[in-house]
Structure formats: structure tokens, C-alpha cells
């Protein structure tokens, strides 16, 4: 893991894809690559009604990244300061080994440059004190980015709220 953590609150996500668009436009990407992707599950019947869910898939910034091990050129590298994994386009030759090595399909192919692109947690924005592009555009504020201790304990909070709500109804 990098020293950061990106939390996607699936309960609040409406699947609008703004995060995905912002991600692509920040890197000025053509048709094809999605450094981050919103995966839609469903609609499917859950209990008594159809339900959809969305999973936001940026790069997980693995602790022991297979992409970095697979890369023969040294283009794929883990930043020592924050653990973010980036690809240096000046070194990448487009052999795609990282793409095949990654179990999550995170490195993506840019057909225009003939090089790999990936989610780099917008490290350049972080260095300017900004949030990643995907986080800033989310209309429901379901994406949280920060160090693990900064991430709100959404799940616990929600559980607590649900308990209170249940209690109120019972009354």
C-alpha cells in the first residue's frame, strides 16, 4: 500500500462516472485506456427488489507490486516517499508486461503514445496540496482520499446511524 488510502463509499455512489471522466481528462487520454474504472454490478434481484452497485477501481498501489517486478525497463516504479506506483513515459517502451502481470488490470494501454498509463493517485496534484481529480469531481462525495487515519470511519458511523434509526422506528 501507498501511504494513502482511497475509500469509495458504495452506499453513496450513484454511478455517474464523473470520477472516470475526470481521471481520463486529467491525463488527456484518448479512447481506450481507463486508469480508473467504475464497475457496475447488477441490476440484480436482491431480496425483494433489483439492486445496482458500483465499485471504483483505481490502482491499489500494492505494497509488493507485480507490475514493477514485471517491468523490464524500470519505467514502472514505486515512489519511495509515498509508495505511489508511477510509470515514467520516457522509459516505458510499451511491452505491456506490467499489464499482463497486474492481477487487477490496473495498468492501461494508451494507443496514441504506445505507452502504458495508470492511476498514480494524481501525485502531482497531491504535491500541490490538492486532492486527486476523481475525488474532487464526485457529486455525492463518496470518494475519500487521505492517509488511513484521515479516512472517516464511514461504515461504523453508518452502522451507528442505522441503529439509531431502527430505535426511532421501533418507538
Amino acid at each position: 500500500m501507498s501511504k494513502y488510502y482511497l475509500f469509495h463509499d458504495q452506499k453513496k455512489c450513484i454511478g455517474c462516472q464523473a470520477c472516470v471522466v475526470a481521471c481520463k481528462s486529467r491525463q488527456n487520454l484518448p479512447k481506450g485506456p481507463f486508469p480508473s474504472l467504475l464497475i457496475t454490478i447488477g441490476p440484480q434481484w436482491v431480496g425483494t427488489r433489483p439492486q445496482m452497485a458500483f465499485a471504483f477501481m483505481p490502482c491499489f498501489q500494492c505494497e509488493n507490486p507485480w507490475c514493477v517486478a514485471a517491468c523490464p525497463t524500470g519505467a514502472m516504479q514505486r515512489r519511495p516517499e509515498d509508495g505511489i506506483i508511477i510509470v515514467d513515459p520516457n522509459v516505458c517502451v510499451g511491452c505491456k508486461t506490467c499489464m499482463s502481470a497486474c492481477p487487477w488490470g490496473s495498468p492501461q494501454w494508451n494507443p496514441e503514445t504506445g505507452k502504458v498509463v495508470k492511476c498514480d493517485s494524481c501525485y502531482d496534484r497531491l504535491e500541490q496540496g490538492l486532492q486527486p481529480a476523481c475525488v474532487t469531481v464526485c457529486p455525492t462525495a463518496c470518494l475519500y482520499f487521505g492517509t488511513p487515519d484521515e479516512i472517516p470511519e464511514v461504515r461504523r458511523e453508518r452502522y451507528a446511524r442505522a441503529m439509531i434509526h431502527d430505535g426511532e422506528q421501533e418507538n
Partner: peptide, 24 residues
């Protein structure tokens, strides 16, 4: 393991989704 990139991603996404019964 012989899975394409898209399937790998979809599969991972699926594993990350919590599909809970509707709340009351």
C-alpha cells in the same frame, strides 16, 4: 492463471462490492 485484463478488473470489482439486502 489465464484471464484477460478486463475480466481481471471486473472480477476484482465484483469482489469489492457489498450487495446487501435492502435496509428497512
Amino acid at each position: 492463471k489465464r484471464v484477460c485484463l478486463d475480466c481481471a478488473r471486473q472480477e476484482t470489482g465484483r469482489r469489492h462490492v457489498e450487495m446487501a439486502p435492502p435496509e428497512k
